[in-house]
Amino acid sequence: MPLSERERKVLQQLERELFIQDPDLARQLESGVPVRGPVQPRIRDVLTVAVGVLLILLAIPLQAFPFALAGILLAGHGILAHRTYKNASSSRLL
């Protein structure tokens, strides 16, 4: 069933607005090929947490409070960065 002239104009307006607001999503939808999100932020966050935990473990035998504090801050940052990335990527799907 063909679209009416009014429906075509509304659809074209929606397409223009989508290209203005989110050009990456518009290109992805236009191509029809789903694109997965970048892996780098996930890897970076996991490595940040791992280095933080290693600093905490290193601080125990050395009894070095600055290492422990740096490890806690680094691990916390990695966890929060991953949560932020995860929430941002899931909100893009809605």
Rank of each mutant, 00 (worst) to 15 (best):
Y85L: 14
D45S: 14
V53I: 15
V46K: 10
A68N: 12
H82W: 15
H77N: 12
R44I: 15
P66K: 08
I43T: 09
G76R: 14
F67P: 01
T84L: 13
F65A: 07
F65Y: 09
D45K: 02
Q40H: 10
R42Q: 11
Q63P: 01
P66N: 01
A50H: 06
V51Y: 03
A50M: 10
A81Y: 13
T48F: 11
L62I: 05
P41N: 13
G78L: 02
L55V: 00
A50C: 07
A70E: 01
H77V: 10
Y85N: 13
G52V: 11
H77D: 08
V46Q: 13
H77S: 14
A88T: 12
K86A: 11
H82C: 02
L69W: 13
L73Y: 07
F67H: 02
P66H: 09
L47G: 01
F65Q: 04
I43Q: 04
L58C: 04
L54P: 00
L73R: 00
R42F: 15
G52S: 10
R44L: 12
R44Q: 08
L58I: 11
L54F: 05
A68W: 10
L73N: 06
L62R: 15
A59V: 10
I79H: 03
K86V: 07
I56Q: 06
R44G: 03
L57A: 12
G76S: 09
F67C: 02
Q40N: 05
A75I: 13
L58W: 11
Y85W: 15
L47K: 02
L73V: 10
Y85M: 03
H82T: 04
L80V: 14
I43N: 02
A68S: 07
P41Q: 10
L69D: 07
I72S: 06
R44M: 09
Q40W: 14
V49M: 06
A70C: 06
L57N: 05
Q63W: 14
A70I: 02
A59I: 07
L69G: 07
H77E: 10
H77W: 15
L62E: 14
A70N: 02
V46S: 07
I43G: 03
L74N: 04
A59E: 03
L47A: 04
I79Q: 04
L54R: 04
G78M: 03
G76V: 05
G76I: 08
G78D: 02
P41E: 07
L80F: 15
A75G: 15
A64V: 09
I56S: 01
R42V: 12
G78I: 09
A59K: 05
L47Q: 01
A64I: 11
T48M: 10
G71C: 08
L69C: 12
I60D: 02
L73D: 01
R42M: 12
N87R: 03
A59R: 06
P41S: 08
A70P: 00
A50N: 01
L69R: 11
R44E: 04
G52H: 03
K86W: 13
D45W: 08
G52R: 04
P41T: 11
F67A: 11
G52F: 03
R42D: 10
G71S: 06
G52E: 03
